[in-house]
Amino acid sequence: MVATDNFQKTSEPAQFNLAAYLNERQKLCDTSLDQSIPIIYPEKIYEAMRYSLLAGGKRVRPILCLATCEMIGGTVDMAMATACAVEMLHTMSLIHDDLPAMDNDDYRRGKLTNHKVYGEDIAILAGDGLLALAFEFVATKTPQNVPIERTLQVIARLAQALGAAGLVGGQVVDLESEGKSDTSLETLNFIHNHKTAALLEACVVCGGIIAGASLEDVQKLTRYSQNIGLAFQIIDDILDITATQEQLGKTAGKDLKAEKVTYPSLWGIEESRTKAKELVDQACAELESFGEKAVPLQAIAHFIINRNH
């Protein structure tokens, strides 16, 4: 395995150069995202949207979308519009999550948060703008060789992942649970299955739908993505305790300060790591029937639990 400064070395699978794969796909995604928002009048809103969308990040979500489409038999071109859309939606959620009314954070990806640069009013509107653009992008930029019914399924899936049945619902329960030391594991799982895993699931499943995944394939992709989504959150909770602000690119120790119940607070750090590894192993097992085509998705799953930032 070859490692770079951007992507930490992982142990599986040895023959696959994950770092090179991620860096190549990140560049593809960055180029498409850069082209997706030209600056026109009124310039401030487009600048604010671009500020957060192009602020960096590993582009794990769009890369998952592209990798799944290819595994099922599609192409990067078929899925790129959806891949960009999921990153727009993810960025929208970060902008709104950082607002004083939510998590009240000053830094994101090592830079000042959107509302610290443009003000709360423009930050809210920048998030709204990205939300609307994401669906417009899928509807207008998905290639014509993708059947229209697949594009409609993607739009419906993305909307469901974001709404009260997904991210929004998870965020509500998360806010209600702040300061409550008796928050149960069941509630914690609900929060993160909706707030974190729902959009990750949409990234993966939508990539499969675009390529014509069967119902059985969609079920496998759903289980894979739900498992890595929960593992992703467990590692996030651990890093909030163990990593520095420089490593995280955002304020460290926020969960403790907000008196949030987290997986490490329930299980401890070592058991939390063990649980995350079990989830990733289960996720990878779901893709065994795809053979070598599943290697990128399996490697990304292992990368999620081995990251240090």
Rank of each mutant, 00 (worst) to 15 (best):
D236K: 09
G249M: 06
L175A: 15
S32C: 11
A81K: 08
Q160F: 06
L185Y: 03
L64G: 09
L167H: 12
G249V: 04
Q153G: 02
R273L: 06
R273Q: 13
E201A: 09
V218L: 14
L248Y: 13
D121M: 08
D34W: 00
R223L: 11
H309Y: 14
I124Y: 14
G253H: 08
E178K: 15
R273C: 03
T113W: 05
Y263I: 01
G253P: 09
R150W: 04
L167Y: 09
D97H: 14
K260Q: 11
I241K: 13
R307P: 06
A258P: 00
P147I: 02
W267E: 02
L175E: 13
S214C: 01
E120N: 14
T262W: 08
N17M: 00
G253F: 09
R307H: 11
L66I: 15
Q226K: 15
K116L: 01
D236P: 06
I228Y: 02
K141M: 14
D174I: 06
K257S: 14
M88Y: 04
N193V: 02
G179T: 13
F7E: 02
M92L: 14
A85F: 02
E271W: 00
R307V: 02
L239K: 12
K180Y: 11
S93A: 13
Q15V: 00
P62V: 04
S265W: 04
E186P: 01
K116A: 05
L239C: 07
K116G: 07
S93C: 11
R59Y: 04
A211V: 03
S272V: 01
T68D: 07
H194V: 03
V60T: 13
A3Y: 09
T140A: 09
Y21D: 01
I40D: 01
F137Y: 15
A231V: 05
L199D: 12
D128V: 05
A101C: 15
D98N: 12
G207L: 12
D34A: 11
L152G: 04
L266N: 03
V76L: 10
D217G: 01
T140F: 07
G208W: 07
A83V: 03
L22I: 02
A48K: 01
F190Y: 15
A301I: 01
V218P: 00
L112I: 00
D5M: 09
Y41F: 02
T183C: 13
T262I: 05
L162C: 15
L22Y: 02
C69W: 08
D106H: 11
H194M: 12
S272K: 05
I305R: 05
A301G: 10
A156G: 02
D121W: 10
A252L: 08
Q15D: 06
P100Y: 14
A101H: 10
C284H: 00
L167K: 14
K58V: 03
N306C: 07
S11A: 11
K250C: 07
V218N: 03
E70Q: 15
T196W: 08
T75Q: 10
Q8L: 08
G208Y: 07
S265H: 04
A299C: 02
A294C: 03
A79C: 08
S184P: 00
P62Y: 03
N227I: 03
C29T: 14
Q245S: 15
D255Y: 12
V60G: 03
A197Q: 12
A294D: 04
L131N: 15
L133I: 03
Y118G: 02
L279W: 04
V204M: 08
T196P: 11
L200K: 09
Y118V: 00
A211G: 09
G57N: 08
